[in-house]
Design a binder for these strands. Structure first.
Length: 493
RNA sequence: CGGGGCGUAGCGCAGCCUGGUUAGCGCGACUGCUUUGGGAGCAGUAGGUCGUUGGUUCGAAUCCAAUCGCCCCGACCA
């Protein structure tokens, strides 16, 4: 898998491989390789001895943890409680909902032996927990007084994917899955929408990425759901990624697992359900949504390290500079900033600059003896590359403000990028051309599966979602029939 | 599951076609000295069942077969 690097002509020699190994592939010409490079070289994760599974390393896990913290608070604020169901599910449970089993059976992993003996009934390692949860809810729910049930769990999931990629599609991954039960259709639908809107705000305000939010077509719907809603973000290669889903389950699982309650009038009714989730795929979403030719670029709100201090010293100034760096770090920490002092003694500052840029740290502080003499430091921004001196007095407040500005700038850049690569198209030829060059195509669709499939076969692009804001009469771009609105077409992860 | 590429030191590679001393190189690691404001230099040290199994041969990293794994494209799929 050798990589060739172009010769820098003025140097008059080949850039040797030892040098180029420090660099990453070109994001514009070799996106998949770029992705692998940044994940590996930034120490986010690596693949494991078991195909398709990954070891998440501390820097990558910290990113996930930051997302988990914000989301978990948001779930609790909206009235949800956490609990935990086991990973192993009796095979027979999975069989009870017809669409569900059809959707998940091909990618299930089974436990067949335990204690040295073959099990009487195989156990499925959960590909999602609807079945075991609804089986249990049947016992937990008796009356309208037990409703709503607003539960969430943080768990690992196993789906035997055929083509795994770190964070984007792994056989084992981490996620949260909310499973709620309600007394009325309206209430369950409201819950579905509350969560998908929560996901949208999270991705916008915390991950700094704009999304399209909308209904899924019947073809793209979750196995067992009546309606699926999703948020779709654009990656730097102009492909779409589904960043979160929220499902209105209707009474499908209640009927499959006989989950009923007595209403105020004493009548038995089936309960209404929802389920919703986001996963470690969000890490991949951030990587591909913000990365550039220099590597990763993390929004301050989730960056494991928000400010890195690179001390610059010689032997005779080491103690002075390092001492000042640690004092500053203490101040920044007190101001709530996630800060790190890069004390690696054997590396030159220049190397560290590039290293932390590749690893996506939003702000870098350079601190040397000359700065200390002037009671200042030099602050460099990852996104703009701009470097400027800042007085040490009041530095914590100044950096808090810069982090906020960076968060905003990153969202705006992502939005500009998405706008530039999103087009309304009104002919099938235009749609095919756009899907070929990459980007989101907003086109009218008659809601027929035949037309949807035609597009998929011709372009490999799919309908990512059907946003409410694109409603309005028109003619289907494929067949010319009446269309209730535009939908988002794109190639997707 | 189909097409293509690849498994040699922690990482990146050469060697294989045309079998033959002790399997090389760069980076990294370790030790020492000099360095340190945009990817440091010199000297020395350690590090390998050549993915695995079987076969051909006096002799296999090299030839043959099988097998496992990784990457890309496609099919399938959150």
């Amino acid at each position: 898998m050798g990589r060739r690097w172009s010769v820098a002509p003025w140097k008059g020699r080949m850039v040797v491989s030892s040098e180029s190994e420090r660099f990453i592939a070109d994001i514009n010409t070799d996106f998949p390789e770029w992705y692998q490079d940044v994940v590996r070289k930034a120490d986010l994760a690596e693949s494991s001895p078991v195909a398709g599974c990954m070891t998440i390393k501390p820097y990558g896990y910290a990113l996930w943890e930051n997302m988990v913290r914000v989301l978990d608070d948001a779930f609790k604020e909206t009235g949800h409680e956490n609990l935990y169901f086991p990973a192993l599910i009796p095979e027979s449970y999975l069989q009870k909902e017809a669409d569900h089993v059809e959707g998940f059976a091909p990618e299930c992993a089974y436990v067949t032996h335990g204690g040295g003996k073959e099990l009487e009934e195989r156990l499925v390692f959960r590909p999602t927990s609807e079945t075991i949860i609804w089986q249990t809810y049947a016992r937990w729910i008796e009356s309208y007084r037990d409703l709503p049930l607003l539960y969430n769990q943080w768990a690992n999931i196993m789906r035997w994917e055929r083509r795994p990629r770190l964070f984007l599609r792994t056989r084992e991954f981490l996620w949260q899955e909310g499973h709620t039960a309600h007394g009325t259709r309206e209430e369950a639908m409201e819950e579905t929408m509350t969560i998908v809107n929560l996901y949208r705000s999270f991705v916008r305000d915390v991950l700094a990425l704009p999304v399209f939010m909308g209904r899924k077509s019947e073809m793209e719907r979750f196995a067992g759901a009546v309606e699926t809603f999703a948020i779709e973000a654009m990656m730097k290669d102009r492909k779409a990624i589904q960043a979160g889903t929220s499902h209105f389950l209707g009474q499908n699982f209640a009927k499959a697992f006989d989950v009923t309650f007595q209403n105020e009038k004493g009548e038995r009714e089936y309960v209404w359900g929802t389920s919703w989730g986001v996963s470690t795929r969000l890490v991949g979403t951030v990587i591909m949504g913000h990365g550039d030719e220099k590597g990763l670029s993390f929004p301050p709100k989730v960056a494991p390290i928000q400010v890195v201090i690179v001390p610059i010293y010689r032997d005779d100034t080491r103690d002075r500079v390092l001492g000042a760096a640690h004092e500053l770090a203490k101040d920044l920490k007190a101001a709530g900033i996630r800060v790190k002092v890069d004390e690696r003694d054997q590396l030159k500052p220049g190397f560290k600059f590039n290293d932390w840029e590749m690893r996506g740290v939003p702000l870098r502080m350079e601190l040397g003896p000359k700065d200390l003499d002037k009671e200042q430091c030099v602050v460099a921004e990852r996104v703009s590359g701009a470097k400027s001196p800042l007085p040490l007095a009041g530095i914590a407040d100044a950096l808090v403000a810069r982090l906020a500005a960076t968060q905003k700038a990153m969202y705006e850049a992502a939005e500009t990028f998405r706008e530039a690569n999103t087009k309304e198209v009104d002919s099938y030829d235009d749609l095919k051309a756009l899907m070929d060059e990459g980007g989101f195509g907003l086109a009218h669709w008659c809601e027929g599966s035949t037309c949807e499939l035609t597009v998929k076969n011709d372009t490999t692009a799919t309908i990512r979602c059907i946003p409410e804001e694109l409603e309005g009469a028109g003619k289907c771009v494929v067949c010319g029939a009446d269309s209730p609105g535009r939908v988002v077409f794109a190639k997707a992860y």
